Simulated scan of single mutants.
Amino acid sequence: MNVTELTRELVSIPSYEDETAAGDFIETWLGREAGGDATITRDEVGNVIARKGEPAPQTLALVGHHDVVEPAPSQVQDEGESSGEYVVDERDGRLYGRGTADMNGAVAAAMLAFVEADPTGELVFASFVGEEVGGVGARHAIDAGFAPDYAVVGEGSTGYSSPGVTDVAVAHKGRRGSTITATGATAHASEADAGENAVYRATDAVGIVRNLERPAVDVAGDRLEGSVVVTEIQGGTAMNVVPDRCEITVDERTVPGERAALERVEGIEGVEWTVDQDLPPMQCGDEGFADAVREAASAAQPGTPEHVTKPHATDAGWLADAGTDCVVCGPAEPGEAHTDDESVSIEVLERCRETYRHVAESWPQ
């Protein structure tokens, strides 16, 4: 089976909200194609993990995820025997459908590379569930002892340095979402001094957020800058009532090693700060590994790949946070994921398959 056929099979399987069928397919396919060379496991949350090769001091993993975001109506078959399956179209050298770019195409390339490679040591394939909802699968696997020394995560890295070139991302931003809650004391608006206005306290907090220094770090010749943005505010119950509660949500894009000092808002009376989601950033700590993956990517394509950075959080953040040296290298291009006409280049899928296989056969050194 070639990478186009395997991608078509994977993409056609509904995997929004319930990834079971996609996991079943991956597990069965690996069991059949890898034969007795690999050990395939399926954990209680649905992650599929396969291992082959001789145990070595260092382990390399090819990592992806088989969940997707909600498809558009046009991306789902609505009649006939295939009703409910996801639509997959091929035209102009690309595959179109939910999950082609993010990221069943990369999962298919990694599955084939895993089966075909003659690794230098232990090679691991992992496809996680729940990446789109905060890295549920990756976090579960890490808590259960999943700890490769190195990982190539197949999220998109194509078209960053120049159009059509599959680069190697050596760092990406994380995301911390939080809530600032201001409380006060209610009163009639005609006697405002009898209360404590929670909206005023909240706007004082907004002032602090607006003036916070944004963390930044230099990586691969880029200035990777974080951001802190107030995105929602809600408070008050009526036009003539002093509000006793006001909530603000904050979207913060984090960078490796630094965070904005949002805790400063708690210096205001009646204000609390709560972290709701914290997706960690990633930075590869092994230049030799990053160079080796870039060399493999260069050998697989006519263009010249570069080390780049990504603005989006991926499962590489969770792995890096747990001690794995990661890079991101995959077929998706900026702007393709999560769109109603999501697509991926077939040529680039083949390129990634070859890149993954080459890395597996040359690393660890």
Rank of each mutant, 00 (worst) to 15 (best):
D251M: 09
E342P: 06
G174P: 10
A192G: 04
R201S: 03
S157C: 01
Y160R: 10
R139N: 00
E33V: 07
G121S: 08
E287D: 15
S82Q: 03
G323C: 03
E9P: 07
A313M: 02
Y16V: 08
E361P: 10
N197R: 02
H188D: 00
I49T: 11
A169I: 07
V129D: 12
A313G: 01
T249Y: 00
A299C: 11
T39K: 12
I142M: 08
G267K: 05
A108Y: 08
G23D: 11
G53V: 13
T120A: 10
G84I: 01
M1R: 15
S162K: 10
D18F: 11
P148L: 13
E354Y: 04
A202D: 02
L60P: 04
A300R: 02
H358Q: 12
T314S: 04
V107F: 02
S15A: 10
G137Y: 06
L30W: 04
A34L: 12
P119R: 12
V133F: 00
R51N: 00
E287V: 15
G130L: 07
L212G: 09
F114H: 14
S161R: 04
S227P: 14
E54S: 05
D291A: 15
E132K: 05
V133L: 11
E81L: 08
T274W: 03
A296V: 14
T59E: 09
V153Y: 07
D286T: 13
V255M: 08
E263M: 08
G99D: 05
V48L: 00
A22E: 01
A147S: 15
A297Y: 02
A126Q: 02
T183F: 02
A290E: 07
R245A: 09
I180C: 04
L224N: 14
N211R: 15
Q283C: 09
E5H: 13
R175L: 06
T7L: 11
V199A: 05
G207Y: 03
G303W: 03
E306H: 12
L30R: 02
N2L: 10
I40M: 05
E350R: 07
V275W: 07
P163Q: 05
R210L: 13
D89H: 03
Y86Q: 13
T39E: 10
E247T: 14
G97H: 08
D167F: 12
G226H: 13
D340Q: 12
G93P: 13
G134A: 05
R176L: 15
T237N: 06
E354L: 05
V63D: 00
V3A: 05
G257T: 11
D340K: 10
T158D: 08
G23L: 07
G335W: 01
I233V: 15
E44K: 12
L60R: 01
E116N: 14
E132T: 08
V255E: 06
I248P: 10
S178W: 14
T254M: 05
V275E: 14
G80N: 00
L349E: 01
V199E: 02
R98D: 00
D43Y: 05
D149Q: 08
D340A: 15
E258I: 09
D291G: 13
F125Y: 10
T100G: 04
G36F: 06
M1S: 13
L279P: 04
T39W: 04
A182T: 07
R91C: 15
V219P: 13
T339W: 10
